[in-house]
Each structure stands twice: as structure tokens, then as C-alpha cells.
Amino acid sequence: MLKDITLGQYFPGNSVIHRLDPRTKLMMTVLYIVALFVAGGWLSYGLMLVFLLSCIRISRIPLKSIVRGMKPLVIIVIFTGVLNLFYTDGGKVVLRLWSLAITTEGLKRAVFMVGRILMLVSGTFLLTYTTSPISLTDGLESLMGPLKKLRVPVHELSMMMCIALRFIPTLIEETDKIMSAQKARGADFETGSILQRAKALIPVLVPLFVSAFRRADELATAMECRCYQGGDGRTKMKLLRYHRNDLAALGIGACLAAGTAVLTAFGL
């Protein structure tokens, strides 16, 4: 049950997109998001959609798993769609329901906003689906490198993120185990009011926190035993290097952002 969480899960693979430098993918994602917010017409939206679908295709990630990952968003998407549908003025009135009117402009806005959310989420899913957590944090650390001059603890932040990501599956497994153990003693997580159910979680949360602290302690000791000193003078086993593919990808990303900007400027 808990193991079915797919949000931000990494799908191992060997496609062109998988092999790109994580920094390239991060920058591409930023460009993609910028382009998505710049886009304002049917044609520019179409261009973004074509780009997204071809990226998904190239990455060989099954469309099904991307759709499955978006399930938790259903409510937000419906909410956005309905709000935009009814509360946009301008254009011809298509349908009138009591005092509410659906206009052509409203229809357009609703479609664009829903499309934007869906494309935003699936685009960022593509990043986490094709990049392992380790290389993602590596890429972030390298991209944020210049911030070190402003005394931002970049290495420490990325190490923390790396450890957090590493321990998510461990903690999920642990939660499952503790829940089973308490169920064996008659704990009931499935029935009762919300308050009762929240209370029923105490026997799970306390041992979970205790074990998380214990693990943290053990990990800290293990790191100290290996003379971990923080980022200063630390070298990498896997050096990040840009290849020709990365340049090409970044070029495509820049073209995409520029293209949508030009199309929008012409009102397309």
C-alpha cells in the first residue's frame, strides 16, 4: 500500500535523456517552465505539447506511469478549470447558467490553465523519472556552485537532500513494518472518526521517530569514521562533464523558449 507511492520515482533506463548531464536536464526544465509561462496562444501551446510528448517518447517512460503520478492533482486541476471557466469576462457568451456565463474567452483560459498545470507537472516528472536522486543532487550542487561565494552552504545543502532522498524508501519500509507490528496487537487504522484515526497513528509515529533518530546517529558516526569534513577539498568520483548531446539539448531548449516568446508576441 505505502510502496505504491510513485511521486518522483526514478525509472532506470538508458535513453538519450537518461544519459544527459543532470545540469543540462535541470536547466532544460527551467527553460521549459519559463517557456510554458510565456506561451499565450494556441500555436505556442501546441509547440510545447509537441516538445513534451516527444521528450516522453524519447525517454521511453511509459505514458501510463506519468498519468498515474498525476492522480493526486485531479482536484486542483478541476478547481482551476472550473474557476477559469466561469470567472473570465470577454468574448462571446456560449452558455448561460443562471447568473453565471461561460464565454469563449473563459473556455480558452480554462483550457490553457489546465494544460499549463498538466504540462508543468509532467515535464518535471520527466526530470525525476530520468535522473537518479544522486546525480540530481550532484547537478544541483554544481549549478549552485557560484552561491558559495555568498557563503551559502551549497555542499551541505545538497548532502542533506541526498541523504533525505536516500532514506525515503527505508522509512517507508520501516513504517510498513511498525504498522504491521501494531496491527498484530490489535491497532486499528482503518475505522473510526478522523480524530480516532489520527490518534491511532501515535503507536506508529513514536517508534518511527525513535528509529529515524537512531539511524541519523548511526549515519553521523559512520560518516565521521570515514573522516567526512564537509565540502572543503572534497573530490568527486563521478565528475560531471558536458558532452555534445548536452549542448544540442540546451540549444533546443533555448530555441523552444525563444520560439514560444516570438509566437506569443505575434499573438499566436
Binding site: K177, I178, S180, A181, Q182, A184, R185, I202, P203, V206, P207, V210, S211
Partner: peptide, 13 residues
Amino acid sequence: VGLVFQYPEYQLF
């Protein structure tokens, strides 16, 4: 049917 898991001390709360 009482079940004692492995390392049951981790369930104390």
C-alpha cells in the same frame, strides 16, 4: 494468534 515480529523492541511507544 499473537505475532511477535523480528526485533519487536522497535515497536515500543
